[in-house]
Design a protein around this nucleic acid. Structure first.
Lengths: 131, 131, 131, 131
DNA sequence: GTGGTCTAGACCACC
DNA sequence: GTGGTCTAGACCACT
């Protein structure tokens, strides 16, 4: 069962954090079609957030088609966000874990690591500057 | 000179996106103490954003102490976000670039890549589930 | 400018009525890309509905991609629901108007007319019954 | 015997869909006074809906006076929703069928067709806009 | 002034 | 018990 963690200081709206975490869990294969999400009321108590906020997140996931709400029964995963096969994912994850360890050993904080990945993904290069 | 990019659909408030981008540029070494940020007016035209929004972002950066506004002259970087030395950074970046290439070759989207890094940074593992 | 009409006794949630009416207006060509929807607060006063309800409807339209919300500016149509060309639509509408007139002359109420269309669209036939 | 079809994504509460379908069947002449509705249990199995939901729909129909529950025997149609005589109805239906065929040939979807009828019934005209 | 989000609490529909 | 909607009112971000 997925467990939500809300970062109140991130600036990202709580309901979007919930949406993102479900998407990531599906991406990572932690949630699969048929799995049940925690009930709105469970999230309310575990994440100290308002029921409407959770409902909004679930509804948005339902609109995207990732999730299906069955009143009286719960909310169930019904879509997928395709990544690679399990073996490939494990290999990539292993390489990434080692790279993160090296980065941390070099003194990088998590935010530095994220910034670095961000710059690589957006094609920004240290030689050209930012443009 | 840093060039800002706003993602209207990210959910993150524009002014926070500006703040983040300056921080990342400093982290990456693209901006150093003494460098001038673009004027509010320049950002307004290049990023189609309201002047108040840019001013708010600069004010926030000044509060953190990363930036200093010199009336009449502009806004200048005056702090740093320590990472590693240039050589180490280049090496780490090189490894990361190759890893990203491998990930993309395996069919991963940018969001998949970010989710994967996120899960590694937060210590979440595919074997343990989400907790 | 579209004007909303809410039917409190229809059983359809008010926010869905708003969504539907915008969709229909776009379908009919009454609203086109670039047109502005009434502000949330305008709808609140004209349709005696809560601001959150209107916001929910607008947000749903934005998620579908039919509409774009520009904070501080308003909500604007940015998608289309393709029907036929204007001439064809006018011809079809003309035939339908005459058919409706004939139906009403025969004593049919609006609900009868809708039921008839419904049965034709769903392929139900008077000879086979309902199955 | 009427066969119910529930559209889970329509936003209309299931019990109201059942009510509407009985009304439409009566309007169309598929159900007449004395006809028996399927038992609650039959509907439950055929339409994958909860018994309470069916019971609620039947109760609603009884309140309107369209239906009568005879304990131990079943639920029977006992009212009518007057339309025209059979011959007129057949003629109108025939014209409508041809019109729908023309509309579909022109590329209209069912929702387009419904929107068009709606606009004609409510007296909205493409020339006057929406008011 | 614009839309967006969050909270609170109520009621409904469904299982 | 489940999710869904509506209301009310507050605060935020943006133009």
């Amino acid at each position: 069962m997925i467990e939500f963690r809300l970062d109140r200081s991130s600036g990202l709206p709580p309901y979007l954090q919930l949406v993102t975490q479900v998407q990531e869990a599906i991406r990572m294969g932690w949630l699969r079609a048929g799995d049940r999400l925690p009930t709105v009321r469970e999230v309310v108590t575990s994440a100290t957030v308002n029921a409407n906020t959770v409902a909004k997140a679930y509804r948005e996931l339902a609109l995207i088609g990732l999730v299906e709400a069955r009143p009286g029964a719960g909310t169930f995963v019904c879509g997928s966000l395709g990544t690679a096969d399990a073996a490939t994912m494990a290999r990539l994850r292993g390489r990434l874990v080692r790279w993160v360890e090296a980065s941390r050993a070099a003194g990088l904080e998590d935010d530095d690591v994220r910034a670095l990945l961000n710059s690589v993904l957006t094609g920004l290069d240290s030689s050209t500057g930012v443009a």
